[in-house]
Simulated assay, not measured.
Amino acid sequence: MTLFPEIRLVPFSRLTQGSRWRAEAMRSYSAPQLLWITKGQGRITVAGVTRGYGAHNAIFIPAHTMHGFEMTGQVFGTAVTFSGIRDLDLPDTPHHLRIRDGQVQVEISQLLDGIERELSGKRPGSRRAIRHYSGLVSVWLERQIAVADDVTTAPESARRLAAGYAALVEKGFRGGKSVSDYAADLGVTPTHLTRICNQTCGRTALDLLSERKISEARRLLADTRAPIKEIASALGYASPAYFTRAFHARTGRTPKDFRKAD
């Protein structure tokens, strides 16, 4: 049982839990998250938009937002998950910020260090201290959104459509809806939707949908003992055989082989 379930700080070295796909595969969490990257570089996709990240980037991901990012052993940072602290006034939309000011970089690092000390110290008043530190983190984020460089380059209209599509996929990927169904929900053609996804994240609309489904399949195969046929059905595949073909096409392994190896 976690002593302080309201917040978690996880170093990037632990995010993969021995398997890089846990960080790189498309997924979402039920709580908002702040990624503070201190070293390394790669690419991250949040809400259907892919951007490069580097040292001293702060990336805020709202709850239930589809995302995934490249991460190697050369990337260092901290993932902060706000699970149950009220009145933090965190943003409703994703933000990817490049923090250039050294003093501001030190400020967020010191705030996270303070939270970590309270989490591990078990001192009187730790829960109250964590709440106050978290409030200061939210203030820091608000201020940086107002003044820091946002690395987004895609047009606003494209980002809105990609984010809308990603949100619909996150809600409905377990069903059997096709890209055409999602496009109709968004009031655009499948061709236009795919063109926008290619523009914002370098993937087709079908790729994003397939990656999200396979990501969940990997999680279920690795973390549960649910039969493969039940996983296939739960994710909207027409048959276990079709699920096996789709999984192999994305991962190079059958679901059975993946479960044995992970």
Rank of each mutant, 00 (worst) to 15 (best):
E116V: 12
H95T: 09
T93W: 15
V46E: 00
Q17P: 01
G77S: 10
E6T: 15
T16S: 15
S120N: 10
G77E: 00
Q33M: 10
D92L: 10
G68M: 13
I108V: 04
R98Q: 14
M71V: 02
R8T: 02
I7K: 00
H64M: 14
E6S: 09
W21L: 11
K39P: 10
A31I: 09
L111H: 07
K122F: 04
F69S: 02
V106D: 12
Y53C: 01
M26G: 05
E24M: 15
Y53P: 05
V104D: 12
A58N: 04
T65I: 10
R123Q: 13
E70G: 01
F69V: 01
G18S: 14
D101E: 14
Q41L: 05
A63T: 03
E116Y: 15
Q17T: 15
F76A: 10
D89Y: 01
M71P: 00
G77F: 00
E107V: 07
Q41M: 06
L88R: 05
D113H: 10
G42W: 05
D92Q: 13
I37Y: 08
S120I: 13
L97I: 13
R51W: 08
L111R: 09
L119Y: 13
V46G: 02
F76E: 04
E6M: 12
P91S: 10
T50Y: 10
E118H: 06
W36I: 03
T50H: 14
L97V: 08
N57Q: 06
K122A: 12
A79K: 01
A47L: 13
P62I: 02
V104H: 15
T50N: 08
E116M: 10
I59F: 05
H95V: 06
L34A: 02
S30F: 08
